[in-house]
């Protein structure tokens, strides 16, 4: 399984009710269903992804994240997961609010726009950063709301969102000591486990 999904899987309790936003090929839910008897649903809108999920027996619902989660009842999931989609949705703040309305907790992961490689490209070359995590050119990128760890944490403060846990990793989804010296500089990705207002 993809490194980031493995890490997420360790954060989910057996038997939990999980909603996976932008579930892709259903890798996480497939794993959780078999290993942790998790009852889950994934949302996606890519036809091939949906077919792959169906072939795996993953409950996949065709739904556009930009349309929100109005169809889900308050507190109906133990965990709502969104991996690497925050920066691509139209209204990330509203979506995070909705995730915490629908779920008891949520896990959000996204690439860090303040990683030193991004900073260097902007500072030294004066161009929009392109990296392994953000491979698109400025004109065709689906990533319309890029942010940094500092930005996201500021949002959590203004929204009174409880950051239960944060784990910062490198490009290979490994946690390294040096990253924690300056996570917003050395970290490429972060996993935020969030809870409702403190």
């Amino acid at each position: 399984m993809r490194g980031d999904l493995e890490l997420i899987a360790t954060l989910i309790n057996p038997g939990a009710r999980v909603l996976d936003l932008g579930c892709g090929e259903g890798e996480l839910l497939d794993h959780l269903q078999r290993d942790k008897r998790v009852n889950g649903y994934g949302l996606d809108r890519d036809a091939e992804n949906i077919r792959t999920c169906v072939s795996k027996g993953v409950n996949v619902i065709e739904q556009d994240l930009d349309e929100g989660l109005d169809n889900f009842v308050n507190g109906s999931f133990d965990m709502v997961v969104m991996t690497d989609a925050l920066q691509a949705v139209k209204e990330p703040r509203e979506l995070v609010r909705d995730m915490l309305r629908v779920g008891e907790e949520c896990i959000v992961t996204f690439p860090n726009f303040a990683h030193w490689r991004c900073r260097a490209q902007l500072a030294l070359k004066g161009v929009m950063p392109i990296s392994e995590q953000l491979p698109h050119s400025w004109f065709d990128t689906p990533n319309i709301h890029l942010c940094t760890f500092a930005d996201f944490e500021q949002l959590c403060v203004t929204e009174s969102i409880n950051i239960i846990q944060r784990r910062v990793v490198d490009a290979n989804h490994q946690e390294k000591t040096f990253i924690n010296w300056a996570p917003n500089f050395f970290g490429t990705h972060a996993f935020y486990r969030l809870g409702k207002s403190v």
């Binding site: 649903y41 999920c53 065709e62």
Partner: peptide, 19 residues
């Protein structure tokens, strides 16, 4: 169809959907 899907999710049933 979405109404059916929403009700099935609320009832915690296994469902996949596509338009």
């Amino acid at each position: 169809s979405q109404e059916i899907v929403d009700a099935l999710i609320r009832a915690k049933k296994n469902v996949a959907s596509a338009t």
